[in-house]
Design a protein around this nucleic acid. Structure first.
Length: 477
DNA sequence: TGAAATGTTGGGGCG
DNA sequence: ACGCCCCAACATTTC
């Protein structure tokens, strides 16, 4: 009897799963496995919200598998040890999984491959979590794209693959082997959950997708920039855990597009672009792994960020005195999630107003975000800091007050998360320092910096690194 | 997926 | 009627 292990990682679903469908096609008996690696629960980037979301997603995967007659085996430890051990216990002749693109994950997979190879067990990984991998979309010169727009054009010219079929019920039952209990509370790992996190699992994912596609997607282009209205998809935590397949999303999105007149395609196009941004940054990370630890453009590694720890703490806590920044950070701390527009505003503020290294913000986001993803988070931070691929030029500095006026026009979002300011009218809620003393909120901090002054300092700081001769082109090559 | 500084233009108030 | 100034509105450039 041919036995194969299907190793689940960031693909916690039974439908539209490439390695799972390949495993069931090629083996008579498939044993689903999840390894609770140490790296999932230790390290500077680990956060309770994301860990809880992951663990609960694994739990619901186990239930879904059980309904189909499969028993998910959970083990703790190092994958390169546990996977070969499981092969010996079960007699599996092959291990299947879906490919990961983070440098550390690829190194880990290489170690697993080596360990399996030495005991004569096959290891195969499949493209699943993206439509196009890091070497599949290249410029005419054969290089990876480093600018989004031409990348997205090339991406859109290609056909979209069909979703894979849902997993069929198990035919042959596997030999029973012990499984370790699966914790669902991250507190067991020293990360007590303080946030309220969204529903997990494949069913919740497809409900969220359907809710979004049933209406909000059409207004997405405009609504997504207004945090008080919540016009975003909320799909990011599911995309990270793989509780639905990218091919399924794209097929449904195409169905919506065909069902509405062309005049309503704008929102769909903007949302598709966001999905392409995700693949863009994954291929950036894979092709330029140094972005993990350094600036994409080496010249910016010389920046000497003068920001101080007290300012960083104020930023983390939502006590900078800039209402839109504080509201966004308090929302992040309470829910593990923040609107993309607000992510840009707070990232700009940390780097260009507080003059703190973007890597500090990158790490804090990873600690807090329920949807934190190395590639997208790193790409977003380097974009905001002006150090990355296709980044905002260093001189593009958001004014937190005017940005707030555009995305939170009547101040509802600020009032929700900064109740101290609930009594201020729309024209003052984003700049309480201009309010008459009688309206001033007690307990709300004064501005820790003055934007206009910090802007000048930031421009000077970047110019020092760029060199005095640079006038037109912001980037040295 | 900016914002601020600077330049230009044209209408209207006014002597 | 005319010149002058003011300044909003828009355009351009600079960071």
């Amino acid at each position: 009897m041919k036995i194969a292990i299907n190793w689940f990682r960031r693909d916690l679903r039974v439908s539209d799963n490439v390695s799972l469908s390949e495993a069931t096609r090629r083996a008579e008996c498939v044993i689903p496995v999840f390894i609770l690696e140490d790296a999932l629960r230790t390290g500077p980037d680990v956060g309770a919200a994301r860990l809880a979301f992951l663990l609960r997603s694994v739990e619901s995967l186990r239930e879904n598998l059980k309904c189909l007659g499969y028993t998910l085996i959970v083990r703790r430890g190092r994958s390169e040890v546990e996977i070969p051990k499981l092969c010996r216990e079960t007699g599996a002749h092959a291990v299947f999984c879906n490919k990961r693109y983070e440098p550390y994950a690829q190194a880990r997979d290489q170690r697993v491959f080596n360990a399996l190879n030495s005991i004569g067990v096959g290891f195969e990984s499949f493209k699943d979590s993206v439509v196009w991998e890091e070497r599949e979309i290249l410029t005419q010169a054969g290089n990876p794209f480093t600018v989004f727009t031409p990348y997205s054009k090339a991406w859109k010219l290609r056909p979209i693959p069909e979703p894979r079929a849902r997993l069929k019920p198990a035919g042959t039952s596997a030999k029973m082997i012990p499984s370790e209990p699966l914790p669902t509370d991250p507190a067991e790992f020293g990360h007590p959950l303080k946030q309220t996190i969204p529903p997990t699992g494949e069913r919740a994912a497809s409900l969220a997708l359907q809710n979004f596609l049933d209406g909000p997607v059409l207004a997405y282009g405009e609504a997504r920039d207004h945090p008080a209205a919540d016009g975003t998809s909320r799909l990011s935590p599911h995309l990270r855990c793989g509780t639905f397949g990218i091919r399924t999303i794209l097929k449904k999105l195409n169905g919506i597009r065909r069902g509405v007149p062309a005049s309503q395609h704008a929102g769909i196009g903007v949302f598709l672009n966001e999905l392409i941004w995700r693949e863009f940054y994954l291929q950036v990370l894979s092709n330029f792994p140094h972005v993990m630890n350094r600036c994409f453009r080496p010249a910016f590694d010389a920046l000497d960020w003068p920001g101080n720890p007290a300012h960083f703490q104020a930023w983390c806590e939502g006590a900078t005195g800039y209402p839109i920044v504080d509201a966004a950070m308090r929302c992040l701390n309470a829910t593990g999630w923040m609107h993309n527009r607000l992510r840009m505003i707070v990232a700009m503020f940390l780097t260009k107003d507080l003059l703190i290294n973007w890597q500090m913000g990158e790490r804090y986001f990873m600690q807090q975000l329920v949807d934190g993803d190395l590639a997208a988070n790193n790409g977003g931070w380097q974009w905001s800091a002006g150090t990355g691929t296709d980044a905002a030029p260093y001189f593009r500095i958001f004014n937190p007050v005017s940005q707030a006026g555009k995305c939170d026009e009547n101040g509802d979002f600020v009032r929700k998360w900064v109740p101290e300011l609930a009594g201020l009218p729309a024209n003052l809620v984003h700049q309480p320092w201009n309010a008459p003393l009688t309206l001033r909120a007690s307990g709300y901090p004064d501005r820790i910096v003055i934007h206009e002054r910090q802007r000048e300092k930031c421009l000077a700081m970047f110019k020092q690194v760029i060199g005095p001769n640079s006038t037109g082109k912001p980037y040295p090559t």
